[in-house]
């Protein structure tokens, strides 16, 4: 039954967090100049229509009542209409989310493929030349602005060398039907392996760019963690028993570093969704980021605030999943999480 208690506790906390976020978002929406009733009623509305819209939206009521009405609409999944796309914000956001998830997940895979071996080598050769070189390059790559790197990579690799496609999610010759929203899957379903490969090539450059900054952070965190594990007694015992280095790393060091790695990735997931905004707008991927930047361009308040709330929901869910994974994996974490103290 521990899992029910844990989930209900964490969901309750998540809901409180989201309500606080909704309050912040509601406050931001009151900052926006202009009359929302006029906007909702449309450009050529008469004074009566505007008054009706005002009543309809509850704008004639006190602010606190308005906030609860707003929360009520949120519970029904109603984030309002987007003034730039003339469709419900909820719809637009849920069309956009899979693309962002695909980008972020692909980046995480790339990050793990590079950062995990690099961190292991650096930790094992702590203080050596390889460690120094890796650490220095991690500091430098962590300082590169993502949007600038994206532009340069797009220009040199996509434009000058033409190794990878410049932008977009898939080449124009493939017509892709929307099934799951994940381009890699949809392209494979509609156009076979060839189209799937094309979509993969399109995803490669954006996800690699996104992986650079976060991969550097992950590398540093993993290195510290592996060094910590290497200092433990069971590693010393295993070493003195003559366990070969590869077995030591694969069976004794890495399994013990997984917990912290999951936590780091959970935190990074949210930040990566944030940075995906930049990468998507440069590589013209139709995700959350493109939706947000379009909303900024047309001062589309409902779309902006909806995107903020949905991002918050994604991050809260991600941290819930991470905590669950940890609790399932490690009884000690389970005990601590159910112990009540934060």
């Amino acid at each position: 039954m521990w899992i029910v208690r844990l989930v209900s506790r964490r969901v309750a906390l998540g809901v409180i967090t989201l309500i606080a976020l909704a309050a912040a978002v509601f406050f931001i929406s009151t900052l926006v100049p202009g009359d929302p009733a006029r906007v909702a009623a449309g450009e050529n509305a008469t004074a009566d229509q505007i008054a009706a819209a005002r009543e309809n939206l509850g704008l004639d009521k006190p602010v606190i009542i308005q906030f609860f009405l707003y929360l009520g609409r949120l519970l029904h999944g109603d984030l309002g209409m987007s003034i730039s796309t003339h469709s419900p914000v909820t719809e637009g956001l849920f069309d956009a989310l899979p693309t962002t998830f695909e980008l972020v997940l692909m980046s995480i895979i790339l990050m793990l493929v590079v950062a995990l071996p690099a961190a292991t080598i650096a930790a094992l050769r702590r203080g050596g030349a390889g460690d120094q070189a890796l650490r220095t390059s991690a500091v430098f790559t962590a300082g590169i602005p993502t949007f600038w790197l994206a532009l340069l990579v797009q220009f040199f690799i996509g434009g000058k060398l033409q190794i990878l496609p410049l932008s977009g999610a898939v080449s124009r010759q493939y017509s892709v039907d929307r099934v799951t929203g994940f381009m890699l899957i949809d392209a494979t379903i509609s156009g076979g392996a060839e189209a799937g490969w094309d979509a993969f090539l399109h995803l490669l450059m954006p996800s690699a760019v996104l992986a650079v900054l976060f991969g550097a952070q992950l590398f540093r965190a993993l290195r510290t963690e592996i060094i910590r594990v290497l200092a433990r007694e069971h590693i010393a015992v295993a070493r003195s028993k003559g366990v070969p280095p590869l077995t030591l790393v694969m069976h004794h060091v890495l399994p013990n570093s997984i917990g912290p790695a999951i936590t780091i990735l959970g935190v990074q997931f949210g930040m990566m969704v944030g940075s995906a905004v930049l990468v998507e707008s440069i590589f013209a991927l139709p995700g959350l980021g493109s939706y947000l930047t379009n909303a900024v361009g047309s001062a589309d308040v409902n779309a902006l605030l909806g995107a903020v709330l949905v991002t918050g929901l994604v991050v809260v869910t991600a941290s819930l999943v991470v905590d669950l994974l940890q609790a399932v994996r490690d009884p000690r974490v389970r005990a601590a999480q159910n112990g009540g103290g934060r």
């Binding site: 929406s29 949210g270 947000l292 809260v316």
Partner: peptide
């Protein structure tokens, strides 16, 4: 809970 990038983007655009 919200990446500061996203929240400040929305807030700055709103202001």
């Amino acid at each position: 809970a919200v990446p500061s990038m996203v929240l400040s983007l929305a807030l700055s655009a709103a202001m």
